[in-house]
C-alpha cells in the first residue's frame, strides 16, 4: 500500500536539526554554567558574576554603552523614520536604499572604515568610550529606523486629521497621537539595538582600542586566553536569561521584530 505522506512530516529533518544544533548546545551551556571545572555542581560562578569587581564594571560599562547607543539611535532614528513614513513613493525608496545599502558591506570592513575615519580626524584613542558608542550607533541605527518606520507607516492618517480638526496643534497631535501609537516600534527598536550593543565586542575592540570591555568580550576572554569555559558559560547564561525574559515580555511584538530583522537587510 502506498502511503500519502503528510506534509507535516516534512518538519522532521528541521526538528532534528534544531534539536541537535540549537537546543542541545544551549543545554550544554546550562550544564557548564552550573558546574565547576571538574564537573561538580556549583553556583560559584554565579556568585562571582555578581561580586567580582571586574565583571561588575564590565556589566556597568556594557549597560552604559547600550543605553547611550540606544538613546542616540532613538533620537536620530525617530525623525528619519518619520520622514520616511511621510515621503512619497519615489523619495521613500531612494532613502530606504541609501540607509540600508551600507549594511550589505561586510560588518568588520565597515567598522574598519569608521576606525580609519576616527584616526583621520584625530579622535581615535582619545575618547574610547564615546567612540565605541558612536560605532554602535553607526552599526545599529538601521535596526532602530526600520521598526519605527513600519509602525509609523501603519498609523491611520485620519486620526491625525481628526486631532487637528478638534483643535490640537501639530505638536499636541504628535505627542498625544503619533508618539503613543508608535510605542510598539520604539520598544522593538530598543530591544534590537540594546541587546546586541552589550555583546558585539568587535566594535569596542576596534574603536575603544581594547580599553572598553563589554560582556561579549568577557565571554570571549573566558573561552579564549582566560580558559574558563564554565565562567564564560555562566555569563552567557545570564545574558541568555535576560534576552529570553525581555523577548517573553515583548512577546506580542516578537513576530514583527523577526520579520523586521530580515527586512532590515532586504
Amino acid at each position: 500500500m502506498k502511503l500519502r505522506f503528510s506534509r507535516s512530516q516534512l518538519c522532521i529533518p528541521y526538528a532534528l536539526f534544531l534539536a541537535l544544533f540549537v537546543v542541545l548546545p544551549l543545554v550544554i551551556v546550562f550544564y557548564f554554567a552550573l558546574t565547576d571545572k571538574s564537573g561538580n555542581f556549583s553556583l560559584a560562578n554565579f556568585s562571582r558574576f555578581f561580586f567580582d569587581p571586574a565583571l561588575i564594571s564590565t556589566m556597568i560599562v556594557s549597560m552604559a554603552i547600550g543605553a547611550a547607543a540606544t538613546i542616540i539611535c532613538l533620537l536620530l532614528g525617530y525623525p528619519v523614520a518619520y520622514i520616511l513614513a511621510r515621503s512619497g513613493w519615489h523619495r521613500k525608496n531612494v532613502l530606504l536604499l541609501l540607509l540600508v545599502m551600507p549594511m550589505w558591506i561586510n560588518f568588520v570592513l565597515r567598522i574598519n572604515a569608521l576606525k580609519e575615519f576616527m584616526q583621520l580626524i584625530g579622535i581615535l584613542g582619545k575618547y574610547n568610550f564615546l567612540n565605541t558608542v558612536l560605532g554602535m550607533v553607526y552599526d545599529f541605527l538601521p535596526f532602530m529606523i526600520l521598526p519605527l518606520y513600519t509602525t509609523l507607516i501603519k498609523i491611520d492618517k485620519s486620526l491625525l486629521e481628526a486631532s487637528a480638526d478638534l483643535g490640537a496643534t501639530p505638536s499636541t497631535t504628535f505627542l498625544s497621537v503619533t508618539l503613543p501609537l508608535s510605542t510598539p516600534g520604539i520598544l522593538s527598536g530598543i530591544t534590537m539595538v540594546f541587546m546586541p550593543t552589550m555583546t558585539v565586542y568587535v566594535i569596542s575592540d576596534a574603536l575603544g582600542l581594547g580599553h572598553v570591555v563589554i560582556l561579549g568580550k568577557q565571554i570571549e576572554h573566558y573561552f579564549g586566553s582566560g580558559d574558563n569555559w564554565n565562567m564564560g558559560s555562566t555569563i552567557a547564561l545570564v545574558l541568555l536569561l535576560v534576552i529570553f525574559a525581555s523577548t517573553f515580555l515583548s512577546n506580542r511584538f516578537k513576530d514583527e521584530e523577526s520579520e523586521e530583522k530580515g527586512r532590515a537587510l532586504w
Binding site: Y14, L26, V29, Y201, I243, S258
Partner: peptide, 20 residues
C-alpha cells in the same frame, strides 16, 4: 525554537556551538 538563533545574542550561539 527556530527563532532562537535570530533573537539570541550571536556570541551565545557561538559559544554554545563551541561546547557542542
Amino acid at each position: 525554537i527556530s527563532n532562537i538563533p535570530m533573537i539570541n545574542a550571536e556570541i551565545i550561539t557561538a559559544v554554545s556551538l563551541v561546547l557542542l
